[in-house]
Design a protein around this nucleic acid. Structure first.
Ligand SMILES: [Zn+2]
Ligand SMILES: [Zn+2]
Ligand SMILES: [Zn+2]
Ligand SMILES: [Zn+2]
Lengths: 186, 186
DNA sequence: CTTGAACTGTTATACCGTAACATATACTTC
DNA sequence: GAAGTATATGTTACGGTATAACAGTTCAAG
């Protein structure tokens, strides 16, 4: 069954979209614009490599390995060596424009519009083990629960990685009906 | 200031102990006994390598890299090749006797006595960025909060890694007073 | 234009993890 | 106990992930 037409909403506002067919150009445009705004605001330089890396990450709601990113960069005429990718990725992660997904040794574009707690903001990552799509859900509640749990050990939380593995609605449905369906989120 | 004398409590019952001076032999004894009980119960074989790996992990409330474990194994007359360590570690992780800490690409002995949800039980890891000590706090509340957050994206959580970075009480105190203090937890 | 800081690119290397196969040990069945 | 099967241990070899160190380039002032 085909999806209903989408209105102008990005996965930044509704994480569930990452697992659905949607007009992804809105996601890309919104997040790229935010990146430019953030950099202008903080006096950071969104150089060609960095911008291209962000674009590459934004192409899909999935996490990409550094070497995958590197291959794409190389194909675009940038450097062919790991540090080229890692440095750009570090820049994006440091300034809250991308996230490292520990579990996958991979990176994904940040999907937040709210630049209130810009760098190192808290997020929860939902990773579908079937289609590999990745959504970024708001983690404020979880952060509070985490700090409560940590308080019991007299531990001061500075940052947290919260990564859940599971099945998105689409893949659950497919599994239940013996259906097969193609990729999503790009 | 020296710590007050400890009674017979392990880090399994009080995660905070992982960050304090304590009689660690209780931790080791308790967890080793639990491992044997679990294996006997499930018909698993806690072979010499596996047992030794668990002992190595139990030596300290810190996460150890696979190659670090391997070096210790080799020194004890076991194999010198990576798979020797990885297989034993996989066994321990699979059966809930150890955990993989994604953020550190490292492993730590499980510090739970409650074998209710034996394998793959949920836990929150608190990692002190200063002394590298690691505590395992109960994660039931967080798991609930996580499922609630995931429900918003119609995502079914099957497993989660929750890893917090921060400062333990001891290291906070040391930082605050310009003190220096030695290692802890072993 | 000069100077220093930041960015890009390179070589080389270290760390983390697994595939594939050979050997040895432990259970099962006769 | 012997034969056969499953499990565990050990080895070689390789692939994926990440960083150190250094050289050249671009940029923003001064
Ligand atoms: Zn999108
Ligand atoms: Zn999915
Ligand atoms: Zn202990
Ligand atoms: Zn500490």
């Amino acid at each position: 069954m085909p999806e209903k037409p989408q209105h102008e909403v990005t996965a930044a506002e509704d994480p569930a979209l990452a697992f659905q067919t949607h007009d992804h150009r809105h996601c890309v445009g919104t997040m790229l614009a935010r990146a430019e705004a953030v950099c202008a605001d903080k006096g950071l330089r969104l150089t060609p490599v960095r911008r291209r890396v962000l674009e590459i990450l934004l192409e899909t709601h999935k996490a990409l390995g550094a070497y995958e990113v590197l291959d794409r960069l190389a194909a675009d005429g940038f450097g062919h060596q790991p540090p080229v990718a890692y440095r750009a990725l570090d820049f994006l992660v440091t300034h809250g424009l991308a996230h490292r997904i520990q579990r996958l040794n991979a990176f994904a574009a940040c999907m937040h519009t709210t630049d209130d707690s810009d760098a190192g903001h808290e997020a929860v990552f939902l990773i579908c083990r079937d289609c590999n799509a990745l959504a970024e859900a708001p983690g404020l509640r979880l952060r509070a629960a985490l700090e409560a749990a940590a308080a019991g050990a007299d531990f001061a939380v500075e940052g947290a990685a919260i990564e859940a593995i599971g099945l998105c609605a689409r893949c659950r449905a497919a599994a239940g009906e013996g259906n097969d369906n193609a990729g999503v989120g790009a």
